Computed example of a mutant assay.
Amino acid sequence: MRAVEITGGSGPAEALRLVDRPEPVAGPGQIRIRVRAAGVNRPDIFQRLGRYPPPPGASNILGLEVAGEVDQIGAGVTRWAVGDRVCALLGGGGYADCALVDARHALPVPDGLDFVQAAALPETVCTVFANVFESGALKAGETLLIHGATSGIGVTAIQMARAAGACVVATSRGADKADAARALGADLSLDALTDDLEGAIAAYGGVDVVLDMVGADYAALNQTALKPFGRWAVIATLSGARAEVDLARLMMKRIVLSGSTLRARPADEKARLIAAVETTVWPWVRAGLVRPPVETFPLEQASAAHFRLEAGGHVGKVVLTT
């Protein structure tokens, strides 16, 4: 099979190379997917840079989400059959023609959804669900603040929050991106480069939940923006991991601060999360309420896909096709 390997260097052009590898064989509890599309995510970039190694037992091939057909079934698997259309959450291995996955970490591709759209969902939807709806406990009628709102996570969070009956305040860099977030459903979309974020959010009435992918630069803003009993979920620290937190303000407002990662969670926990996503989010997907915008690159142009993601000009997801 073809697969994309990390061969050294830090830039995409020198670091990523298309190679031939033996096809993996499905073990007990696993399925093998004939990959038709694979999501590209920022953790892939961090792994390429040597900052985010795969967890023990995971493939060292990049790629945390795929969509395709089941073409091999391991012992003990009863839900799936050869030929089933699935998308799946991986610990690694997505940038390839075949990928192995714990059978419990796969989801059926809904009718009417193509493989490119399906590959854009597992990692992103699971991240949003775990942080916004589980840790963040977002409810209908509440307001979610999303930083980095035109990223793959951001656009998915906009759509999922709206599907759940919540309001959305979005921040993004540049007028074009602010317009894109608004078109995707944000009730208040702010340009982080020119708008008075603190003043605009205060005038809106504050927020109940923050989905924070920025980190240090927005820590003070988040503490101000959150209403009493607010929830602040940190999932990335692109502007830095060290921030000043006013503990007295957190106490007075009864704010809950949480942080999480997805990739290294135990297999049983991922299975629980996938099951919850299928129950709660998959009806929104089937109804067309969750459809992040997607840009595609062929597998052999994985380096170009990384360039695109790192440059930050995209809106939504970047997906490789096989």
Results as ranks from 00 to 15, higher is better:
A166H: 01
A166G: 08
C167L: 11
C167F: 13
C167H: 14
V169A: 11
V169C: 10
V169H: 03
T171F: 07
T171D: 01
S172I: 04
R173Q: 15
G174A: 13
G174H: 11
G174S: 01
A175Y: 06
D176V: 02
D176Y: 02
A178K: 10
A178L: 08
D179L: 08
D179Q: 04
A180M: 02
A181R: 01
R182V: 05
A183D: 13
A183T: 13
L184A: 08
L184F: 11
G185T: 03
A186C: 06
A186V: 04
D187W: 05
D187A: 04
D191V: 07
A192T: 07
L193G: 06
T194R: 11
D196Q: 03
E198M: 05
G199S: 05
G199W: 00
A200K: 09
A200F: 07
A200S: 10
I201Y: 11
A202N: 14
A202C: 08
A203R: 08
D208W: 02
D208F: 01
V210H: 00
D212N: 05
D212M: 06
D212R: 10
M213F: 11
V214F: 03
V214W: 06
G215L: 05
G215Q: 13
G215E: 05
A216Y: 02
A216S: 15
A219V: 00
A220G: 15
A220H: 11
L221W: 04
N222K: 03
Q223V: 02
T224H: 10
A225V: 08
A225W: 09
K227Q: 09
K227G: 06
K227S: 05
K227P: 14
P228T: 12
P228S: 15
F229C: 12
F229R: 12
G230V: 07
R231I: 09
R231C: 05
A233S: 12
A233Y: 00
A233K: 08
V234T: 11
V234D: 02
I235R: 02
I235A: 12
T237A: 13
L238M: 10
S239D: 14
S239Y: 06
G240N: 08
A241F: 12
A241G: 13
R242I: 14
R242M: 13
A243I: 13
E244A: 11
D246W: 00
L247S: 15
L247M: 02
R249A: 15
L250I: 12
M251I: 12
M252T: 15
K253F: 11
K253R: 05
K253C: 09
R254Q: 14
I255C: 03
V256Y: 13
V256M: 15
G259C: 02
G259H: 10
G259Y: 01
S260Y: 04
T261M: 03
L262T: 01
L262Q: 00
A264V: 00
A264D: 04
A267I: 10
D268C: 06
E269A: 09
E269F: 10
E269T: 15
